[in-house]
């Protein structure tokens, strides 16, 4: 485990979200979002469909500008950074989009190699080597010259992950990693996330509503609620399951088991 959190000199939080509000035009979707993520933690953003989980993630990586509030990495504001600083910060992020988002006009090797070609001084043959290594890490060794359209959904996701870790990121973002995967592949992806966290020492932010995955990998979490338009619970998912009094959170984390059993008893 990372020890940086114990050092007084180091910034205690890797990621800090302060009073974030998100709006589409005049319509405020979520407001008053405050949370912190420790270095090396796996942090889950959860909530029902349409609660704004993915939107929050897009705010954190600068794809959407917040209406108010800011996001800080290592104590430096990402929201207020100028374009140059922001580009430098982005380079330390790795993001896995829902469908993998591999560039369809390039082969898998070109996809993973593009950030290396753009941001490092590696020679083409060295890039090729690094790409093979990254692909092997996600179990796609030998698929270098395949185009994304020739791969299955799960392979595309893993390809996207290989691209996300190409530059050894400090923060990894996952947008619903288990969506569209069979239970076994989803489980394998969870294991891969845990392994990558351990080996890269990266902080991981996962948007998910897959309970199995949430309990398996989550250290901390944030629960978004669409109706009240804010976060209604925070903490370790397992602790939330045992201690959280809020019926909305409880219903979600127990998959509505209690409501269902009550209905049966009536």
């Amino acid at each position: 485990m990372e020890q940086t959190a114990d050092q007084p000199a180091a910034q205690p939080w890797h990621i800090e979200v302060r009073d974030l509000a998100m709006a589409y035009g005049d319509r405020v979707v979520l407001s008053g979002i405050n949370f912190t993520v420790k270095r090396g933690e796996i942090f889950i953003i959860m909530g029902g469909s349409g609660s704004g989980k993915s939107t929050l993630l897009r705010h954190m990586v600068g794809l959407i500008e917040p209406a108010t509030g800011e996001v800080l990495y290592n104590g430096v504001s990402f929201t207020r950074a100028d374009p140059g600083e922001r580009e430098a910060m982005l380079r330390r992020f790795g993001i896995l989009y829902q469908g993998g988002a591999l560039w369809s006009s390039m082969t898998l090797a070109e996809n993973v190699g593009l950030p290396l070609a753009q941001f490092t001084r590696l020679r083409p043959d060295e890039i090729r080597e690094v790409v093979s290594l990254k692909l092997a890490m996600v179990g796609l060794k030998g698929f270098e010259d395949f185009y994304p359209s020739e791969l299955s959904g799960g392979m595309r996701k893993r390809g996207g992950l290989a691209r996300a870790i190409a530059l050894d990121p400090e923060v990894l973002f996952f947008d619903e990693p288990s969506s569209g995967l069979d239970p076994l592949s989803a489980r394998l992806l969870d294991d891969l996330i845990l392994e990558l966290r351990a080996s890269l020492g990266a902080t991981v932010v996962v948007v998910s509503h897959d309970l199995a995955s949430i309990f398996a990998i989550g250290d901390g979490s944030l629960f978004l609620d669409a109706e009240s338009g804010t976060a209604i619970a925070q903490g370790n998912p397992r602790a939330l399951l045992e201690q959280c009094e809020d019926p909305r959170v409880h219903r979600f984390l127990t998959r509505g088991q209690e409501a269902a059993s009550q209905a049966r008893n009536v």
Partner: peptide, 17 residues
Amino acid sequence: GSMKVSDEVDALATMGI
């Protein structure tokens, strides 16, 4: 348009390209 729809454009932007 299809790159935009499948997040490929966002993937470039968040890579700093």
